[in-house]
Design a protein around this nucleic acid. Structure first.
Lengths: 196, 196
DNA sequence: TCGATACCGGAGCGAGGTTCCGATTCGCTC
DNA sequence: GAGCGAATCGGAACCTCGCTCCGGTATCGA
């Protein structure tokens, strides 16, 4: 299924054993450092944690986005796959959309700085943006279309804007106890509902 | 009016003529550079544009936030003062809130990177955050309370969260044609309305 | 005019991202 | 098992940027 493989390092193409081992080591180290210091932790720290040089990290993951994608690929995929399932299971499309959005928000909020990185237009992050879009936009579009077909929501808001808005609302949610991103996203989705 | 002067440089305390002149030059240069390159343009660029050294810029504006505040102070004040006026003029508190939010969004969206800087927890920006909060939170609180008293909105969302959410939604709005922050903010405010 | 004081300007330090290249290790072949 | 070419490793080096520090200088008051 979906081998929409970008240049995200390589999973099977690696010939040499040490290269593959190092790639895994790097993924583990990156995951640990991301949890501890956020997704924009210094590259040096990740390299140090993995016990490799910086050349190694940049060879395996040319941009920081590639590393982030590799670390979170499974979770993003899970979120993407949950969409159709929710749509099939939920009572109404709008309910399914709401539940899917919750999933997405939970994912973003628990990753330090991920939401911020997603909107960051700094060089190297647009690949991350693109990956999320590639993977999740179709899912969101289907949910949105189903809800629109059921007449539950106001028309005219495409999935891109919705996802972008959700991503934005999640920025900084993990470092500010006074701010509840879930609440605001729920309000946004509520606002999407047809007043009728 | 309102000499709630923080450490935002000084407006009248400067004794020496050249100091005052440089301060104004810096404000003009900063405004120009902010428009061209966003509020997080390199300090060196601003100094160069103003034709002064970097020591000068840091003496007048110890942190970047002080500079940003000084540049936008008038507009923030105008926004703050518009709140009560709208509340008095509008047909309903919720309408006034909506119009005030539009004002705020317009302000944020037209300043490159301002919204992002506001949520940035990097050192030096929390003063900016604090200034906006000091100035606008009371206004927003009053609008929200009036709307709540009129029974127009769901209870339980404080002004801080609303403003933060709006600020977040505005991030990156100026550099992405596919994204319409005004629309999403409107949806959020709509979601705030009591379903009844 | 003259001294004290505040101000000016840029060299310099530290942090972080990214590149580059010599040394090393691996996998394959004979 | 030894040799060889190529891929990989590692970190030194370079760049950008924020911020500080201090010698030189202009300004104000007496």
């Amino acid at each position: 299924m979906n081998d929409s493989g970008r240049s995200t390092g390589s999973s099977a193409g690696s010939k040499r054993k040490d290269a593959r081992r190092n790639q895994q080591t790097l993924l583990d180290a990156a995951a640990a450092v991301f949890v501890a210091s956020g997704v924009d932790a210094p590259v040096r720290d990740i390299a140090a944690k993995a016990g490799v040089g910086m050349g190694t990290i940049y060879r395996h993951f040319p941009t920081r986005a590639d590393l982030v994608i590799a670390v979170y690929r499974h979770q993003v995929d899970a979120c993407a796959e949950a969409g159709p399932a929710l749509l099939a299971a939920g009572p109404t499309p709008h309910a399914a959309l709401g539940r899917w959005v919750d999933l997405f928000v939970d994912f973003l909020v628990t990753k330090h700085g991920l939401a911020a990185a997603l909107q960051n237009d700094n060089a190297g992050f647009e690949t991350l943006h693109a990956y999320f879009l590639d993977r999740l936009l179709p899912v969101c579009t289907r949910l949105l279309e189903a809800a629109a077909a059921a007449g539950e929501i106001r028309p005219g808001l495409d999935a891109y804007q919705l996802m972008r808005g959700i991503g934005n609302l999640c920025i900084g949610a993990e470092s500010d106890a006074r701010y509840d991103a879930r609440r605001l996203v729920a309000l946004l989705v509520a606002g999407l509902r047809r007043p009728d």
